[in-house]
Amino acid sequence: MAGSKKIQFSEKAMAYVRELIARYPAGKQKSAVIPILHLAQAEFDGWLSAPVMDYVASLLNIQSIEVYEVASFYSMFNLKPVGKCTIEVCHTSSCWLRGAEDIIRHIEKKLNISAGETTTDGMFTLKKVECLGACGYAPMFQVGADFYENLTIQKTDELLEKFRKEGKRQTYCNHLVDVK
């Protein structure tokens, strides 16, 4: 957990941080705060603790409050611990029209949690989210950076099984760093 181990980005992540900062004019390094928070969330157990946010502030040479106020505004940043695998099911109009509620109810039953909760083994968190831009391929959910679309109950079961077997933390972020 964050806190017990030293909060420090890996060499690879630091190289990416430097590259991000170079994308903006001198003195405008604050622009990198959102991508760096994504990175921090991925590196430090899937959520942003106060010490992690302080660390990001120190990297950018800005006040901690400037990081807190950003982290608390955007819905993809977790300010509390979450399961290894967060299942984000869209339930806005188009997905609702095509059966999103059935998928949500099924996952709730299967994992024995309500939306917003985490399973006791810390494996899954279920979240209801608003439109993810997959309305034509509804119902759908996002896990990490990947979209799973045209879901059926059967497909949902298979996916849950797959995530459980893999057992790894799913993040939005590998996709950002792996390119280089």
Binding site: K30, P35, M76
Partner: peptide, 25 residues
């Protein structure tokens, strides 16, 4: 590239610019 973090309002162009400056949208 610049990535957001989940906020519909950042599609409004001035909120987008705020976000690109590293602030709340």
């Amino acid at each position: 590239m610049q990535i957001g973090a989940g906020a519909y309002i950042c599609g409004e162009e001035t909120a987008l610019l705020e976000s690109l400056e590293g602030k709340r949208g």
